[in-house]
């Protein structure tokens, strides 16, 4: 096998594995705030690994327009996912959903929620 087939396969498989880890994390963790941390693994590194893995064969074949499209998908996801996460966390916090905390380094804002 060529090096680029192996490299692409390794990247895509590890990305898919991280997606499973992130989704598994959302099943294990106790409340919506901690689950959002697990979900952001899927949004950041897993997305990057899958899309980078897919870009390799296109770049080797010289189809750079396809690689640019993959880059655009990555940029869109990385620009929008923090805003979606923030909105969900913000809405949960102001719907009086108290986070389960071990440490509160603010002046008790976790209880006000």
């Amino acid at each position: 096998m060529d090096w680029h087939v192996i490299a692409s396969g390794v990247l895509v498989i590890s990305g898919a594995f991280l997606t499973v880890v992130g989704a598994y994390g959302t099943l294990r963790l106790p409340d919506v705030y901690t689950r959002l941390h697990a979900a952001s693994i899927t949004d950041t590194l897993a997305t990057f690994l899958v899309l980078a893995g897919l870009a390799i064969p296109s770049l080797v074949a010289g189809e750079w327009l396809i690689a640019v499209k993959l880059l655009l998908v990555l940029i869109f996801l990385w620009f929008t996912s923090p805003i979606a996460s923030y909105s969900i966390g913000h809405a949960a916090f102001f719907a009086a959903q108290k986070p389960k905390l071990d440490h509160d380094l603010t002046d008790g804002e976790g209880d006000k929620a």
Partner: peptide, 9 residues
Amino acid sequence: MDRVMAANM
């Protein structure tokens, strides 16, 4: 919010 988060994911 859990459901919205799951939909987003």
